[in-house]
Amino acid sequence: MEAVVLAGIARRVLDELMRNPYRTIELRGARNVVAVEEAIERAMRLFLTYDPFSDVGVGTEGLLAELLGAEELETRIPWEESDEREITVCRAKVRLVGLGRVVEVENERGLLIVRVRELMPQEMGMG
């Protein structure tokens, strides 16, 4: 199964998604926001992992999720905290589909598309 990668997702979010299969995730990283846009455009699933983009490769484990919807919001931030005045925040509604392990990675202009093998819970090494 092919999926678009959302990387650097907090462990607490992954754990909560395992307990409750429906969740809204708030994304601030530009690569993750673009990944959600691409997933909507291509009607693809998401692969959520704790690992950063640079570490995603064959063998990376994570969660497979269906994207139910997304909205982008412009948020102002205090000038003392950043050189920018606004950031784009994406709120993505997802439904857990299962556990997965990457078997192939394709980098398309900075966007990671992976082929994932679904796993049984006892095969998962995440903890």
Rank of each mutant, 00 (worst) to 15 (best):
G100A: 01
R28I: 09
A7W: 02
L73T: 10
L68K: 09
V114L: 08
M44D: 02
D55C: 11
C90Y: 06
R95N: 04
A10D: 13
P21W: 03
R109T: 09
K93S: 14
E37W: 14
R95K: 10
L14E: 05
V34H: 12
V94P: 04
N32K: 01
T49V: 01
T49D: 00
R91L: 13
E104L: 05
I40S: 02
V97L: 09
D51H: 11
R76P: 13
R115C: 12
P52M: 12
V105M: 02
E86Y: 13
R12N: 15
M126T: 06
L67Q: 07
E72S: 14
M126I: 13
L27P: 01
M18A: 08
E66C: 12
T24L: 14
K93I: 07
V114N: 05
F53L: 12
E104K: 11
V4L: 12
L99K: 02
P21G: 08
F47H: 01
I77A: 05
S54F: 13
V36E: 06
R85G: 14
A70M: 11
G125R: 13
R85Q: 12
T49K: 00
R42H: 08
V13E: 12
M44F: 01
V33P: 04
A30Q: 14
D55G: 12
L111A: 03
V97A: 11
E61C: 04
V4G: 05
L48H: 01
L27V: 10
A92F: 03
E26R: 09
L96Q: 02
D51K: 08
L14P: 06
E37T: 15
G8C: 11
L119Q: 03
E86N: 15
G8F: 11
P52E: 15
F53A: 08
F47Y: 01
E38S: 10
T24I: 10
L17I: 02
G57F: 03
E81R: 07
V58N: 06
V5Q: 08
E2V: 11
Q122L: 09
D15V: 09
Y50P: 04
E86H: 12
L14Y: 05
E123M: 07
V36W: 09
V94R: 00
R91H: 08
T49W: 00
R76C: 07
E80D: 11
L63H: 00
V103G: 08
T88H: 11
V36Y: 03
A43F: 06
N107M: 07
E72T: 10
V97C: 02
E26F: 15
T88L: 15
E41T: 10
E81I: 10
N32R: 01
V56H: 04
L6D: 07
E37S: 15
